[in-house]
Amino acid sequence: MKVAIVGASGYAGGDLIRLLLTHPHAEVTLATSRKHAGQPIETVHPHLKGFTGLSFENPEPEQIDADVAFLAVPHTAAMNYVRKLLDRGIRVVDLSADYRLPKDVFERVYGVPHIDYFEAPYGIPELHRNEYRNTMFVSNPGCFPTGATLAAAPLARYAHTVIYDSKTGVSGAGDNPSATTHYPNVGDNVNPYKWTSHRHLAEMRLELSRLGSKATGYFTPHLVPVNRGILTTAHILLSEPLSQQEVERIYRDYYKDEYFVRLQFPMLAAVRGTNFCDIRVESEGHRVVAASAIDNLGKGASGQAIQNMNVMFGFDERDGLRGAGVLP
């Protein structure tokens, strides 16, 4: 199966190439980049030298030849590609935010008009896989909403309030240097940002409602001096108290058949480079604390995108994603 990665020079694009090297049914045959067109892949992704033989290309959407395309382009750019690819029979996994939200919510949160809106399935497989088996398109969730939602999902219908506190690695900001990601501003520091207004909150609240919850969601992210990973602490406030034993049983039952959700102490190093989400819960009655760890480029982006591709095509969801984390 031929795979095109549109926007392959970024961190997510590089991780897609790396992970798909071991996929039994897929081969990356096209990696696009406007800026680096004509250059070998390893000029941007030196860890991939000797693995692909590919060079970046810059075709028009109408010239892309593939069975599936991953869109690893900036938010508001994907909507310029999707229809042209779908019309040619190419399945699409979109890593941008362009189809994650209802049209009015997207335009309010991202501040631009949506030029090609349609209602798309939201790709957290553990929660929604049955909605996009054999479909042509799936919208890959944001990294923060993935870790937060998986942490809270089993108790969502019991909650009246959910407060998410997340610590994220610097790679979540992308590969363009800025004052925010400048090493002296990040090293030996923890920086809260967009305290009450991060755009991923809209996805988190939408997911709570999809899970049948009437809970109000809140979210504050923090930037921490690590390369990869998101550690989310979800404070789940319940209408009725639940004991530790009840909460543990609920989580075991909810995720009993989910390979990529592990109920163990969440450590960023244990999920680094993987598609796993590690979760542990502790109850004090009316408040349950659920902490999750994901790799923001793995389960938070490229890993989950490949898992979604596997769902769409009917492959084993673990294909291309069986690697262990890197610890220490």
Score class of each variant (00 low, 15 high):
residue 230 I to K: 01
residue 255 Y to W: 15
residue 255 Y to F: 15
residue 244 Q to S: 04
residue 262 R to A: 07
residue 234 A to I: 00
residue 268 L to C: 09
residue 264 Q to F: 03
residue 229 G to S: 01
residue 240 E to I: 06
residue 254 Y to G: 09
residue 234 A to L: 00
residue 236 I to G: 01
residue 248 E to W: 11
residue 229 G to P: 00
residue 269 A to G: 05
residue 233 T to A: 12
residue 268 L to K: 10
residue 248 E to Y: 02
residue 243 S to R: 04
residue 243 S to Q: 10
residue 272 R to G: 07
residue 272 R to S: 13
residue 245 Q to T: 15
residue 258 E to G: 06
residue 263 L to Q: 02
residue 242 L to E: 07
residue 262 R to N: 08
residue 236 I to H: 01
residue 256 K to Y: 06
residue 268 L to P: 06
residue 266 P to Y: 05
residue 254 Y to P: 07
residue 263 L to Y: 02
residue 266 P to E: 08
residue 254 Y to A: 10
residue 255 Y to E: 08
residue 250 I to E: 12
residue 237 L to Q: 14
residue 253 D to N: 13
residue 233 T to L: 11
residue 261 V to F: 05
residue 233 T to G: 06
residue 234 A to N: 01
residue 269 A to W: 07
residue 239 S to A: 11
residue 264 Q to A: 09
residue 258 E to C: 09
residue 250 I to P: 04
residue 271 V to M: 12
residue 266 P to D: 08
residue 259 Y to S: 10
residue 248 E to G: 03
residue 253 D to M: 07
residue 252 R to K: 15
residue 270 A to N: 12
residue 259 Y to N: 10
residue 264 Q to G: 06
residue 246 E to F: 10
residue 249 R to Q: 13
residue 258 E to S: 14
residue 260 F to Q: 04
residue 248 E to V: 14
residue 262 R to D: 08
residue 267 M to D: 13
residue 268 L to S: 11
residue 271 V to A: 12
residue 250 I to N: 03
residue 246 E to Q: 15
residue 251 Y to L: 08
residue 261 V to Q: 03
residue 235 H to G: 09
residue 261 V to G: 04
